Structure formats: structure tokens, C-alpha cells
Simulated scan of single mutants.
Amino acid sequence: MGRHFITGATSGIGHELARRLHERGDDLVLLARNEERAADLAEAFPGSGVVTADLSELPAELPDGVPDSLDGVVHAAGVVDVASVADSDAASLAETVAVNLVAPMAWTRLLLEPVRRGRGTHVFVNSGSGLRANPHWASYNASKFGLRGFADALRQEEAEHGVRVSSVYPGRTATRMQERVHAQEGKEYDASQWIRPETVAEEIVRLLDLSRDATIPDVTLRPL
């Protein structure tokens, strides 16, 4: 039975991952952005720990309820606004970088010792946008390119502690975020065209459960 800290568990990939781990009896600590979402998580995953924090704000310290030892930390929360740089306002740019990049960095720093004690795995749910840039995705690209660099450096730093670091790069995935992206792009949304969140969650579970004799630095998934 593992112990894991997960962001973004209220929907999409993070929710599917939490469901799978909860069903098999793992201990979970789930991060919610507000009290309403915390209540939803407590109802969906009874027995799990739930902490409340706004990912757009820097955490000062670990909240109560985070165990001293963790087998895994999964950063699955994220935001996106599709717009040209000229049409993006400063608040949107700042939020995208804060939630997608600064928050994972800040929470990772606070969680270093619990993961070291558990010889655990940091998993960063990145994006195909962390591997290639496209017009109208500049702020999202910037946040995900930055997250890739952070994970690559962390992997080298934490190897001496027996800690693994993996980045997952899913292509378009059938989530509420993807539905919103299609609306911003002015396109019809057909979930059947995209990767199922269950598929990405399966890969994350595989990373968390990987035998101790190996590591998988990067996983890339694309819609068929």
C-alpha cells in the first residue's frame, strides 16, 4: 500500500489517478483549491486526507496531514488559456505560470524530505506543449517548457537519495480542460478523438509501481 500526494484530483487525469489508487487501498493526500472542492474530494475518496491551498499562491510550509514519508507525488493540476500574446492579459499570463510551473516547484521543495524518506517518485504531468511550441499557446508552452527543465534538473539532484523523477507528456486528453480549449478555439468537441484520462492514469500508476531497479524519465502519449 503506497502513500501519495496528488494535485488536480478534482477532475481529469488527477481524478482518475486518485480513483485507481484509492480503489486498491493506497493512502492519499489530495490538494484542493478551496473548501468546496475539498468537500467534493472527501466525499469521492473517503478516508483520504484533503488539504486546501490556492496553487496561484506560494505555500509557506507543509500543511497538517502530509505524512513524513511518501511513495509518490503527482502534480496533475493545470490551467490553460488559448490566445495570442497580443490578446493575453497580464493576469492570465501570471496565473498560467503560477499554477503550471511555480506551484509544482514550490510544493516539490516542501515535499523533498517526505519523498526522500520513502525513496519515492515525483511525477509531473506535463503536456505535448512542453515539447513543442505552437501559436496561441505561448504562456502554456512557457509554463510547460519550464516544468520540463525543472523536472530534468530535479532528477539529477535527487538520484543520490534514491528518488525518481518522471515527466508525462500527454497529447490532447478528453477532460473538461480540453472541452474548454475547444470552446476557446471555436471548434466542436468530440471526446472520442482524444486520449482517455484513464489511459494517462494507467501510465502514472506504472511509474509509481515501477521496480526499484529502474527509472522511466519521460513518457509521451499521443492520440491514435
Rank of each mutant, 00 (worst) to 15 (best):
G25M: 07
A83G: 08
D68P: 10
A44R: 09
H22A: 13
L101I: 07
L58S: 14
V99W: 05
F124P: 02
S92D: 09
A90K: 13
N100R: 00
G128M: 01
V73I: 09
D89H: 12
E23Y: 03
G128N: 01
A39N: 05
E95A: 10
E36V: 11
V125F: 00
R119L: 14
L112C: 02
S69I: 06
P104S: 09
N100H: 01
A90N: 02
R119Q: 15
R117Y: 07
A91E: 15
V51R: 06
L111P: 06
T52M: 05
F45E: 04
D54I: 05
D40G: 03
A60C: 07
A83R: 15
P104L: 08
R109T: 13
L31Q: 11
V51H: 04
S69C: 11
G78N: 04
G65A: 08
G72S: 12
D87Y: 05
A86H: 04
V125P: 10
N100L: 04
D26K: 09
R109V: 06
V85H: 03
R119I: 08
P46H: 07
S127P: 08
S129Y: 09
G65P: 10
G128V: 10
L55I: 05
R117F: 00
L58Q: 12
G78Q: 08
L112Q: 12
L110D: 04
A106F: 10
V50H: 01
P67R: 05
R37Y: 06
S84E: 09
R20S: 10
A90E: 13
A39L: 02
V125K: 04
L131E: 04
H75E: 03
A103F: 11
R109L: 07
V79D: 11
R33K: 05
G120R: 11
L112W: 06
L58I: 07
T121C: 14
D71Y: 11
V82P: 00
D27Q: 13
L131Y: 04
E113P: 03
L110H: 13
E43H: 09
D87G: 14
V29F: 12
R119Y: 09
P67D: 04
E43W: 05
R24N: 09
A42V: 01
G128A: 12
R24W: 07
A91S: 13
T108P: 03
V51L: 10
N34R: 00
